[in-house]
Design a protein around this nucleic acid. Sequence first.
DNA 1: GTCTATAATTTGATAGAC
DNA 2: GTCTATCAAATTATAGAC
Lengths: 205, 205
Amino acid sequence: MVNKNKSKTTEEKILAAARKVFTTKGMTGARMQDIADEAGMNKALLHYYFKDKDKLFENVFLAEAQKFFPKINAIFNSEETLFDKIRNFVSEYIDEILSNPDLPWFVLNEMNRDPEQFLFKVWGKENLPKPAKLLAQVEQEVKAGIIKPISPVHLLMNMISLTIFPFVGKPMFLYNLRISEKQFREIMEQRKKEIPEFIINAIKK
Amino acid sequence: MVNKNKSKTTEEKILAAARKVFTTKGMTGARMQDIADEAGMNKALLHYYFKDKDKLFENVFLAEAQKFFPKINAIFNSEETLFDKIRNFVSEYIDEILSNPDLPWFVLNEMNRDPEQFLFKVWGKENLPKPAKLLAQVEQEVKAGIIKPISPVHLLMNMISLTIFPFVGKPMFLYNLRISEKQFREIMEQRKKEIPEFIINAIKK
DNA sequence: GTCTATAATTTGATAGAC
DNA sequence: GTCTATCAAATTATAGAC
């Protein structure tokens, strides 16, 4: 049992606290004091370890933003069939988000607030998703008459939208459909099967 | 030509400037100075007209949040067929957002930042969308064997996700798919037809 | 490394002249 | 109503003791 709970280093405590505060309040809404409180220490230590708020934020944001684009490339560029790719993408992505419920809002929020930072720092040309192969595969299957005619770009947008949006609009759905947190989670679990079925029904011949 | 450009009152100028700054930077990111600059006046005037930042924000937010839920009820509760409702909902919603591109991010952002405010102030029980009739209609058409079995909740989530998400994830799509602002807009125009087709293909028998 | 105390800066808000 | 100047509060950041 290595490095459990209390055995976290100070730096790790800070990062965990910063992650929690930043992902719920955003960069501009978060206070250094909030983070210090959450970490059970004083503000001075935050600066001792991470110099200033910007540096601390960048540290958290980069780590989180990468989780937001998980094994996408592995799936997109695998040798599986299109339908299997869709199933795997949706299912794995929803699992990832279920274990990090604030992730989509946090990343999208900062992405819209400061697109430059996002494009250059997060996607330094390395970990940027490469949808080219998937797009080509769609186009090919359309030509071969395996699936109905659909623009690959629209299909990709649909996959991503169906998967991510419910988490971003969660407060809206909770209130509007009168469902509990627990029910919401169950519905998201269902969507791991529902979404691929929906998409495949839409495009199969 | 009533009340064109320069003939705007000071209050209108402030609201227009506040709208622009708040919708792009969010409540916590926006600075009163930014708004004053944008409006071409000084901070003192903002306080003279709207007392404080919270009041000014609330003023803007309430107006914008209502645009975000347009004639939804009119569509949801009309006597049209399910397929026509889907077509109208998607098409009208995309048109609304195209004329207010920052709207989805702004509203969703604040909704996640401060759900309480959102639920009580925006949805004061009046303008809250009432999806009950639409949900019932879906259920009925499933039972009648007109469409494939699908949970009404999932179908509603799908409609909304497909329509709104691309605007929230816009920076991601722009960079990742290497498309321009102009191309993005064209793609959104296409989606007014693409999405209803996609959904109907997915559920029709 | 960690703390307390304090400085420095940013930002919202007001006073008072015009 | 609108401005300049200024204050007050909030918030980030540092100095210095331990």
